[in-house]
């Protein structure tokens, strides 16, 4: 597991996902649910696609224009939830949001996403660090309808 107290490592995680985002790029496939996440208060603008296979999240894709925090947090999210059941993904999402809003959370389950543990210190970046995650939440909900 990552050291929670090594800013250098956490910084490298964010930079790595910003410069080499995983699962980036949309696919032309109707079996994916799609949503545009366009922050009303800043510039971040991402399209997010999720493919569900029954209860399982089979694939997560995204693309658009976004800052380092938004891009890397979405990239890490996509890796974390891919292949998980919705229930497992929900648990990760709940812990991530708890971390962002300074509540109790389990760092183990968040893996690389703990890189965003300081977001609350730059309150204006909370939107950036949660935009992709909120898109996933919306699509999970849509898949239930």
């Amino acid at each position: 597991m990552h050291s929670l107290n090594d800013p250098q490592l956490l910084r490298e995680i964010i930079m790595d996902h910003y410069e080499h985002p995983r699962n980036r790029g949309l696919v032309d496939d109707d079996s994916y649910l799609k949503i545009n996440m366009n922050s009303q208060t800043c510039i971040d603008n991402l399209d997010i696609q999720v493919k569900f296979d029954g209860d399982k999240i089979e694939d997560v894709r995204y693309d658009g224009e976004a800052c380092a925090i938004c891009t890397s947090s979405t990239s890490i999210m996509s890796e974390l939830v891919k292949g998980k059941t919705k229930q497992e993904a929900q648990k990760i999402i709940d812990n991530y949001m708890n971390m962002i809003y300074e509540k109790d959370y389990d760092p183990e389950i968040l893996e690389e996403a703990i890189a965003f543990q300081n977001t609350y210190k730059q309150a204006n970046r909370i939107k950036c660090a949660t935009l992709g995650w909120s898109g996933l939440v919306a699509l999970m909900k849509e898949s239930e309808e």
Partner: peptide
């Protein structure tokens, strides 16, 4: 090479208020 919002956060961390965006 730095997205404007990320840069504005850096300025913020030094107590400098500047705006990013459109």
């Amino acid at each position: 090479g730095v997205f404007s919002q990320d840069a504005a956060s850096l300025f913020n961390s030094y107590g400098i208020a500047i705006r990013a965006g459109q």
